[in-house]
């Protein structure tokens, strides 16, 4: 019974950190540019497909370090894509109403889907976890898949790095001030356009990284872009706009509620996430934490 409890908790954690990995870049861009980037999932998908292709280029079984290196490389590639999109699309969205970013990024999501189909085809693809992460640890009579632990650890590391950047470094603090009041930041001599671009590139790189790290988590298909996006939206909104700490906490809370709900009320799988999002937003309409933190 205790073992069951632990197992469900662990599964909830894995889900939470997977969604947080996707949500991290989303909340960053949202916090700074107020663009709810519908295409974020599409770029997570591109990161995953790139990882699949690169790993298949290496011969023999892939080790953890090669896998990590590939994921970071994909993050860099998607980051560059982010730079291009910032220049061609986001640049033009600043002048118009926030809602228009919805349709532009929705169009980009469709483009991602079409592009992936053109390059990789419509068939399902699977990437196994790298050697060393394909087994399970045995804790008493409890099976803990090592890849689950890897996802949880990745989520925590990404959170800590982001948190450190935002709160402990100069550029992170500058970013906070731009998010809070771009006009004032501009007056104080901060190059806000450079900060916008930095946020977009970092957000897209995070999408690529999430795609790479999560590529072995589920099947790959051109529809992958839409799989995580609603969960990620829920997490960043419940967490509070642009708030990375909030998103981290929200992911954990929603992950646990969904996991225990699914196990103990099996008749309604998947419904608890929405109940929790609605419930929390009714209780705290501005999300759990507010401001970019």
């Amino acid at each position: 019974m205790v073992g069951d409890f632990l197992l469900v908790g662990l599964n909830g954690m894995t889900w939470a950190m997977a969604v947080f990995l996707v949500a991290a870049g989303l909340t960053l861009i949202f916090g700074i540019l107020h663009i709810l980037n519908f295409s974020h999932g599409g770029f997570v998908m591109i990161g995953a497909y790139l990882t699949y292709t690169l790993i298949n280029q290496t011969s023999g079984p892939t080790g953890i370090f090669v896998f990590l290196a590939v994921a970071v490389l994909c993050a860099a590639v998607v980051g560059v894509l982010g730079y291009v999109i910032d220049r061609t699309v986001f640049e033009r969205l600043k002048a118009v109403d926030d809602s228009y970013s919805l349709i532009a990024t929705y169009a980009m999501l469709i483009l991602c889907e079409g592009g992936v189909k053109l390059v990789w085809g419509p068939d399902f693809i699977a990437l196994p976890p790298p050697a060393g992460l394909d087994g399970a640890l045995l804790l008493g009579d409890l099976f803990i898949p090592s890849y689950s632990l890897f996802v949880i650890l990745s989520g925590i590391v990404v959170f800590l790095v982001l948190d450190f950047w935002i709160h402990r470094t100069r550029s992170g603090k500058v970013m906070q001030s731009v998010a809070l009041d771009p006009w004032m930041a501009n007056v104080l001599g901060i190059n806000i356009n450079a900060m916008f671009t930095t946020a977009v590139v970092a957000g897209f790189a995070l999408a690529g990284l999430a795609g790479g790290l999560l590529a072995p988590n589920q099947s790959l298909s051109p529809g992958l872009g839409g799989t995580y996006i609603i969960q990620a939206f829920g997490v960043i909104i419940v967490g509070g706009i642009g708030n990375v700490r909030g998103a981290f906490i929200a992911a954990l809370v929603l992950g646990m509620i969904d996991a225990f709900g699914t196990v103990y009320v099996p008749e309604y799988p998947g419904i608890f996430f929405y109940i929790a999002v609605a419930g929390i937003l009714m209780y705290r309409p501005q999300g759990l934490l507010s401001g970019i933190r």
Partner: peptide, 15 residues
């Protein structure tokens, strides 16, 4: 009974 179109089936596998 499981969901469909999702990304996480670990709890169903555990059951």
């Amino acid at each position: 009974m499981t969901t469909y179109g999702g990304s996480d089936y670990r709890n169903f596998v555990a059951s």
